[in-house]
Amino acid sequence: MEKAFKNIDTFNDKYRISKYVLDQDLAARIMLEKGVSVGVSGPSLESLAKSLSQPKEISTLNAVLKAREDEIRNKPYENCYAFGPDGRILLSKSGSVDTIVITREEGARLKGAIFTHNHPRSSSFSPADISTACGTRLKEIRVASSKYSYSMKLKDGSNFSETLWSEIEPVMNRHYYNVKFEFTAKIATGEMSMEDAELQHWHEVWSRVGKDIDKLEYTRT
């Protein structure tokens, strides 16, 4: 855990782009709400049909995840939830417009969890998001926003790990600077607005990382 959080405060300086400001949302979160369960009333016919072809715990988790993401995706400040495999809320916390702080004690409770949070600027994962996913050994990390939903997980269903971050980081760094160069050139020629660069930068980086590291499954919907 020490490695995952040791240098988290340096991310903003390390990954700042001089030509445009990127979303610096942190991945971390959360105060334990132990024993709190969530029910979803009035399921649609479509969700009932899906539940017949899915294990009960998967159907419940998907329903709860959708409900909570719809609840937070348009909020002007960051909120997060972490879920167990049965859809029970394990952790929940609110933060500022681009930050939710997590302690080592809180992070230790997240192993195997599905963690979702909103990004008010609608951007994809920050480096700190993915670093924290690895350090806390999440099953999946997600972002819900007004424009998009993002997800990253391992294709084989295993948890993120600290060693995985050491594999991801150099690939991310290479694509980060390539995308920075490409987008800065497009801004200079008028092919891309600064706002679009801010929105698309990390999505483009993670799309390329996902192609290079086959075990990762990265999606935007």
Rank of each mutant, 00 (worst) to 15 (best):
R220K: 11
M1H: 14
S126D: 04
S123T: 11
V38K: 03
N7S: 08
K34R: 13
P120V: 07
D129E: 02
K14R: 12
F181K: 15
T10N: 13
P127I: 01
E33N: 14
S158I: 00
V64W: 02
K66R: 11
R137W: 06
L65G: 08
K147Q: 06
T132K: 06
D70R: 01
D23F: 07
K66N: 10
I187R: 04
S193D: 00
E57L: 08
K147C: 03
D23H: 05
H201D: 00
D9L: 08
L65M: 11
V36I: 09
K66S: 11
L45A: 14
E182N: 09
D156Q: 01
V40L: 02
R121W: 13
G39W: 10
W165Q: 03
E105L: 05
Y218A: 00
I130T: 05
F5R: 12
A128E: 12
K111I: 07
K155H: 04
A133V: 01
G135A: 02
P55T: 07
D98P: 08
D86H: 02
E57A: 07
P85H: 04
A113P: 04
R208P: 04
D13E: 13
P55K: 11
N62L: 10
E2K: 14
N62Y: 04
A144M: 01
E191P: 07
Q200A: 15
N173M: 03
R208K: 05
I17Y: 02
R68S: 10
T184I: 06
I130E: 02
R220Q: 14
S124W: 00
G42D: 14
S193N: 03
E195Y: 08
W202C: 07
R68P: 09
A49P: 09
D214P: 12
P127N: 03
P85R: 03
R88C: 09
K66W: 05
T221Q: 14
E167L: 09
M192G: 01
L26H: 15
N159K: 09
S59V: 01
I89G: 00
E162T: 14
L26F: 15
K75H: 09
T163I: 15
E105D: 09
I168F: 03
P127L: 05
Q24L: 12
I100P: 04
Y20L: 01
I130K: 02
T189N: 10
M1T: 13
D70V: 05
L199Y: 06
K14T: 12
W165A: 02
F125E: 04
V205I: 02
E71T: 10
